[in-house]
């Protein structure tokens, strides 16, 4: 009986598929993701995409909300510097992202949980690579534990 239960847990763990929320800007990264599909480039099915006009639209609060909601990872992807359809949305965003990432990692959040990329409309291949990397990183980290709603504090003592 006990053995069966253990097996079950391991089984579940083995089957665990992370869920990753991706905010993609409409003009570059979303188009890049479409191109990956059109080119039939395969990548892990773990991301859930929210289309936004520009990476500049991403309020860091959105990312925190995703973590609280239990997403195991968050990816934000925009246009390369200079490519922004809105001229400088990605530059404005970049500062926000830098500060958020610094802050969360200073607090002790795993760096792999929240990631950022620039993917152009022509980079279907890169999009697939980014998603693959983020998925692998998150898989290595295991299910999200930090900032998730209704979870007990982690066990490490300060």
């Amino acid at each position: 009986m006990i053995e069966a239960k253990v097996e079950n847990t391991i089984g579940r763990h083995k089957d665990w598929q992370p869920k990753i929320l991706a905010f993609l800007c409409n003009w570059c990264s979303y188009a890049g993701a479409d191109l990956a599909g059109v080119s039939r480039i395969q990548y892990p099915p773990n991301i859930r995409v929210v289309r936004i006009p520009c990476s500049g639209r991403v309020n860091p609060i959105f990312i925190l909300k995703c973590l609280q909601n239990g997403f195991d990872g968050v990816l934000v992807s925009g246009c390369h510097p200079g490519d922004c359809h809105y001229i400088s949305g990605n530059y404005v965003a970049r500062r926000k992202f830098a500060v958020l990432k610094t802050l969360l990692e200073f607090m002790g959040l795993e760096p792999g949980r929240v990631q950022f990329s620039w993917v152009s409309a022509g980079e279907g291949e890169k999009f697939a690579q980014v998603v693959t990397k983020v998925t692998e990183d998150v898989k290595k980290l295991g299910p999200a534990r930090k900032l998730v709603r209704n979870l007990e504090p982690t066990e490490t003592k300060y």
């Binding site: 607090m107 002790g108 959040l109 795993e110 930090k146 504090p153 982690t154 490490t156 300060y158």
Partner: peptide, 11 residues
């Protein structure tokens, strides 16, 4: 290390 820092802030 990260887990100690996290534990500190949680605390």
């Amino acid at each position: 290390d990260a887990s100690e820092r996290w534990a500190f802030f949680e605390n």
